[in-house]
Amino acid sequence: MTNAAVSNVPMVHADRVSKSFGSNEVLKSISLSVPQGEVMCLVGPSGSGKSTFLRCINHLERVDAGRLSVDGVLVGYEERGDKLYELKPREAARQRRDIGMVFQRFNLFPHMTALENIIEAPIRVNKVKKEAAIAHGRELLAQVGLAEKEDAYPAHLSGGQQQRVAIARALAMEPKLMLFDEPTSALDPELVGEVLDVMKGLADSGMTMIVVTHEMGFAREVADQLVFMDGGVVVESGDPDEVLGNPQHQRTKAFLSKVL
């Protein structure tokens, strides 16, 4: 999937984004940019603000300062004149439709089968016809290698299978951006590979992705850009081989020496 008209507008652009929970400043003036069709991996110790940044992108958390935009559109707010207006829930929901999100704990709907999980949002939110949604859902299940599991409830699937269904569910909304919040951290080691394989395939197809991960091998192989965060700031970013192979900062070195 190569975009015929490759836009110069970055898919995600953060300009000095800050976010606090009470007196705890989790993001301190984060500036970064993800071009269309590229994969960015966010790494760093827990509590460094990676997940919070990800959640800000689809407005699950609101930004306190700075500007965050997706495909050239400001997230969560509307700028008219020199004033910012908070978006109505309906408009915020409209923005989220184009952004797929995959969670660490999968968060599949346990009362629905794999296929029902996938077709729920297309039917309810995008008003797709049920037959079309089912056909597309089956395609997606085949794409993540679970064609025969469409009638299985999440409780009957392994962690890796659940996460692949969750990816298919996010893809069913035909997003232009996919966010992965530590997608393999809750998995048994032998199940990590199957999920990473699906993500690699997705990256190869040209999907713009931001991945919070501890899988350095995956980051090195798939990422166009690797960002190391610590204490709410971007410590270092650039080509993954560069950052992983030749870290410039003491903190990056210290972190990498522990995980590599």
């Binding site: 689809n58 699950l60 829930p89 309906r90 929901a93 409209r94 989220r96 439709r97 952004i99 797929g100 999100m101 969670f103 704990r105 968060n107 599949l108 709907f109 729920e120 949002a121 309810r124 939110v125 969750a166 569910r169 996010a170 909304m173």
Partner: peptide
């Protein structure tokens, strides 16, 4: 997480 997953999919309250 259920609430979040649904919200992230663009579902209304």
């Amino acid at each position: 997480g259920q609430d979040e997953a649904a919200t992230a999919l663009g579902m209304s309250w």
